[in-house]
Nucleic acid binder design. Structure first.
Length: 377
DNA sequence: CGTGGTATAAATGGCCATCA
DNA sequence: TGATGGCCATTTATACCACG
């Protein structure tokens, strides 16, 4: 059987349409260069490259995220472009998590496709499912900040990026260069200007993108770093309480990094249990301080987060994507109030229509609500 | 060598059938 | 029920070419 492609199909076999021809061309042009020239069946748009870039930086992304942050909110377009890139071998898709919808992550070819000189070379890695919620929350938080801060020249550097930078065996030279490339102020342009200094590990190597712990014997990696106004702000997304000694060690590391002029501020986006660990909680006899007060990173007593310029800021994590809202709330809710994604969405609709002032989780916790909801179907 | 018009490629968004 | 692939009509981007 002879093989035919695209417009060369023999008369009468399959009617050749532009769509079929383009598909045949897509099949014939796969790999890192796919979509860069005519006759490839599709053309890589700036939005496509942005999606590849985001997926590479954060390791994984949902199609809904892609739609929101790359394709002006049009899901249909995002799905189609993802399909093209998956067909070209640049992206891999996974639909193992119902609440996430389709998750996309870059292939080796996808990473090669957007490799830019001067930027860290990322390794290929299949994202593990167990950490997927955390990974997607990090991506969402970072993308939201990037979308808001892009106009003001904010840049976001992901954990994958700085792990690649700090892996280099060059005494921190490429990490330093990259810091300058993304706008970190490493030298004062005017006298007295605040300058960023790196931390140092126990070998004396400067660490621009990692936080040395235990006198530099170990390194801690923030979830991502925001570069703005020439300074570094570390962001931590914590949805599981760490053991006290581990969290303590991380906070000590950050405290040192802040004091030596490396990190300007740490933002903690956390679930209620972690928030309690960090800033304390109201007890029977007044406020019980958390780790931040104990370590002098916050004045004793209930925190006032309207005060600006604190070295550490804690705020409740707020998922935007409906699937992430679900997955996150399932960890916070007591077992009896958990439900399948499908059921949760039905309950959400009931909540929306109920006109209550309570937020969803609080509404669900009102005695009788769950029993009532379960009786509906 | 620039300009403007035309042909063609590709993007987009809507719709539908299928599938799990 | 949502994700998906197939298809179509319309819009937009790009390549090409003749002309001055």
């Amino acid at each position: 059987m002879p093989e035919f492609s695209g417009s060369e199909l023999p008369f009468g076999r399959v009617r050749s349409t532009p769509w079929r021809r383009a598909r045949a061309e897509r099949m014939a042009n796969q790999g890192p260069a796919a979509g860069t020239a005519k006759r490839h069946g599709w053309r890589r748009s700036p939005a496509d490259e942005q999606l590849l870039d985001f997926a590479a930086r954060f390791g994984a992304l949902t199609v809904r995220h892609a739609a929101k942050y790359c394709y002006r909110g049009v899901f249909e377009t995002a799905r189609r472009r993802v399909a093209f890139m998956a067909g070209a071998g640049l992206l891999e898709r996974s639909d193992n998590l119902a609440w996430a919808g389709t998750v996309v992550y870059p292939t080796m070819a996808g990473l090669t496709a957007i490799r830019t000189p001067g930027h860290p070379e990322l390794r290929f890695r299949v994202p593990g499912e167990e950490r997927m919620l955390h990974r997607l929350l990090v991506a969402e938080t970072a993308l939201a900040m990037l979308a808001r801060g892009a106009a003001r020249g904010f840049e976001v550097v992901s954990e994958r990026q700085f792990r690649a930078l700090e892996r280099a065996r060059d005494d921190g030279e490429s990490a330093h260069r990259y810091a300058e490339l993304v706008g970190v102020r490493t030298t004062a342009r005017t006298p007295g200007e605040q300058v960023v200094h790196p931390s140092f590990d126990d070998t004396g190597r400067p660490r621009w993108w990692a936080i040395p712990l235990d006198n530099g014997q170990a390194l801690h990696w923030p979830d991502f770093v925001v570069v703005g106004g020439g300074l570094l702000r570390a962001v931590e997304v914590e949805i599981t309480p760490k053991e006290r000694w581990r969290l303590h060690a991380v906070l000590r590391g950050y405290r040192t990094a802040i004091r030596c002029g490396h990190i300007d501020q740490v933002l903690w986006c956390v679930t209620p249990d972690v928030q309690m660990q960090l800033e304390g909680a109201r007890g029977p006899d007044g406020w019980i301080d958390g780790l931040l007060q104990e370590m002098g990173l916050l004045p004793p007593g209930p925190p006032d987060w309207t005060v600006k310029g604190r070295p550490m800021v804690v705020r409740p994590i707020a998922a935007v994507d409906e699937g992430l809202v679900y997955a996150l709330s399932q960890r916070v809710l007591v077992a009896s109030m958990r439900s399948s994604y499908r059921q949760w969405r039905q309950w959400r609709r009931v909540w929306e229509n109920s006109g209550t002032a309570l937020d969803f989780d609080a509404w669900l916790a009102v005695p009788g609500t769950v029993t009532h909801l379960k009786s509906l179907r």
